[in-house]
């Protein structure tokens, strides 16, 4: 009914993204069902839980490649939206690489939970990457313009302060600095504060863009915001469980991470379907609508 108006290059990218979405769905479904199985039928101390914990990052890996494919539809690094999608995809890849690093420590070098380790380059590195992704998305949404004209500019400072305060209360209030391990101290402060910054930016971007945001991309952007909030909750619960020594492989937090990776990958994939909708010939749409009204 509709005529697609695009070149083979973009058609090829759309086909690739469809394949990756199918792969992502299969992988996510596998891990979601596995988690249910593990928690219903498998003892907590079984090695199967470790295998689950050490491999679910593949969801983020597939999601990252999917995101990069979709980013190319939007100009990759040559446009603000493309750069945002690229950074968010890189964030997913970094999550995968962080998990891979820890898995290598455990299965190759027989080191259990080597925090802090080389894996932190990727895990901690994903925080500024996500911050860049959200920052660029906010730019694309004209948040700067909204801030200039808004009477609620104080929210720009208040929201990060509130989030930093919450992070401090949850994770650092009773923290004792270990002067013999500066890297650990840096990361112990850096993780909760870094995550507070990226979630603050997400909330600010949402608040200052929602009034004017519309069009075909509105849903895609909302999905990205939701995925970032989900990621923040997964990270927060992980930090909390680690602090209270209640984290276990194959536990609830692992499911939250699997779901947050899938949420972000799904959000990125909707930019591909949005691209396709945008490039449907509006002339043909007008013709179809004209025919529909006369029938």
């Amino acid at each position: 009914m509709y005529t697609l108006f695009m070149e083979p290059y973009f058609e090829d990218l759309l086909k690739r993204s469809r394949v990756l979405v199918t792969l992502l769905t299969i992988v996510f479904t596998f891990y979601a069902l596995s988690w249910i199985y593990l928690n219903l039928f498998v003892p907590h101390d079984s090695a199967l839980n470790d295998y689950f914990t050490d491999t679910y990052g593949v969801v983020a890996c597939v999601g990252g490649f999917l995101g990069f494919t979709v980013a190319r539809l939007w100009g990759a690094l040559k446009s603000i939206v493309g750069r945002s999608l690229s950074f968010l995809s890189l964030g997913l890849l970094f999550q995968f690489l962080g998990q891979l690093s820890y898995a290598i420590y455990y299965y190759v070098y027989n080191v259990e939970n080597p925090y802090p380790s080389f894996g932190e380059v990727f895990y901690f590195g994903s925080i500024p990457i996500y911050i860049c992704g959200v920052w660029l998305l906010a730019r694309a949404l004209g948040v700067g313009r909204s801030l200039r004209t808004s009477r609620s500019k104080y929210a720009l400072f208040l929201i990060p302060l509130i989030m930093l305060f919450i992070s401090y209360q949850l994770f650092l209030k009773d923290y004792e600095v270990d002067s013999t391990s500066p890297v650990t101290t840096f990361l112990d402060y850096g993780y909760p504060f870094g995550q507070a910054i990226f979630i603050s930016l997400t909330i600010v971007a949402f608040i200052f863009s929602k009034k004017a945001l519309g069009g075909i991309l509105r849903k895609s952007v909302m999905f990205v915001f939701m995925a970032l909030v989900f990621q923040y909750f997964a990270d927060t619960i992980f930090l909390y469980e680690t602090l209270t020594d209640t984290w276990r492989p194959g536990g609830l937090d692992d499911l939250l991470f699997v779901t947050s990776y899938f949420s972000m990958a799904f959000a990125l994939s909707t930019f591909a379907s949005s691209y396709k909708k945008l490039t449907v010939s509006r002339v043909k749409v007008a013709q179809v609508e004209a025919i529909s009204t006369t029938v």
Binding site: F5, L73, G75, S79, A140, T279, V283
Partner: peptide, 18 residues
């Protein structure tokens, strides 16, 4: 618009405006 959504898409949407 090209700075934001990519020049290819910006040109494409301009063409599609008719």
């Amino acid at each position: 618009q090209g700075q934001i959504i990519g020049l290819d898409l910006a040109i494409r949407l301009a063409k599609l405006s008719g």
